[in-house]
Nucleic acid binder design. Structure first.
Lengths: 189, 189
DNA sequence: AAATCAAACTAACAAACGTTAGTTTTGTTC
DNA sequence: GAACAAAACTAACGTTTGTTAGTTTGATTT
């Protein structure tokens, strides 16, 4: 019983390297060396370097889209939905931090069609998030700040959490969720 | 009267390309083409590709360090200092957004010594910021959240502002400062 | 024992990379 | 108009890049 295919192992190894140096600075020989094999052997499992990147990014993007869909289905208030979204990002960060680096920094190095697909997904996600914020403002649940400023400040914190979660990694996930929700929603003053 | 040296022009052009694709994906031929000259001609002005990156990043890092020093000199409360720091980041973002991309994403591609210098500067900056936050908490000016969570949520928002400022660029800088300070300090609820 | 198959290997490719050397152009100063 | 310096050029270099082709290894199945 092999639980992880060889291809999945390659993708996992590559994602770690991509996180450290970025997609363009990692060579297929780097990836092969990390696996303990020769570069040419990789091509028994993958179509090419770009395929690794696309799988990494598009699979992760789908996770965000699905998470958003689940949250939209709930009959919660805008504020509760935002809380759920923060928890969604934290959960994904905790067990996908390498792929998050690629999604954030290297999406433009995918093949043309994949880039278009990714950008569309990201825009849809942000639009859903923005609508939740607008609804929260018009219901009087949120402060009447520029919705774009709110969206951006929350998203940029959540998107780069992966850079920081490892260092202070001993932090309990539930403590992190609680404090992050508190800071992002209720501020620090 | 030439206001900008040829070298400065090259660095400016390169920084735009670095922002779009990252340092490693930009070739010296790309930079030369953007200048309307041949790649070899660049070497009349620069020592090499890495020099461009180091100038971009270390000069900008020094701006942050100096801004921090100025703020520390003031006899303000921790809360007021944090406000000043937010404004510092916004000011730098508004007229250095390309260099910020390199500083955030490509610092690890500098020469070894420069990386060490940069990391030391960044750590010193963060330590100063952290101490202001801790002081604010012990004075009762800030909520007693984990200082690291506060530091990270503010810094990650400010550090990636460059990605977002252009798109909605019509936003007045003063409006941005006001709303950003409000959101980061007092939250959105 | 023969056949099969996944997964490694060696060897090589054409293209792109950063960089160097030497030369020519261009505009300014004596 | 001769001299000079800045800044461009052409041509080439040795490496590294992603990738392909064909072969060998080693375990599993027939």
């Amino acid at each position: 019983m092999k639980t992880t295919s060889r291809k999945a192992e390659i993708i996992a190894e590559a994602s770690q390297l991509f996180k450290e140096k970025g997609y363009s600075a990692v060579t297929v020989r780097d990836i092969a060396h990390a696996m303990g094999i020769k570069a040419a052997s990789l091509y028994n499992h993958i179509e090419g370097k770009q395929e690794i990147l696309s799988i990494l990014i598009l699979d992760l993007a789908k996770e965000f889209i699905e998470g958003m869909e689940d949250i939209l289905k709930l009959k919660n208030s805008p504020l509760q939905k935002i809380e759920k979204l923060i928890e969604l990002h934290i959960d994904i960060t905790v067990n996908q931090s390498e792929a998050l680096a690629a999604l954030n920094n290297d999406w433009m190095h995918m093949a043309e069609g994949d880039v278009a697909q990714f950008v569309a997904m990201r825009e849809a996600y942000e639009e859903n998030f923005r609508n939740i914020i607008k609804e929260g403002i018009s219901l009087g649940q949120l402060q009447p700040r520029h919705p774009e400023v709110i969206l951006f400040s929350i998203l940029s914190t959540l998107r780069t959490l992966y850079l920081w979660y490892q260092k202070r990694g001993k932090l309990d996930v539930n403590v992190l969720k609680r404090d992050m929700v508190a800071v992002l929603l209720r501020g620090i003053v």
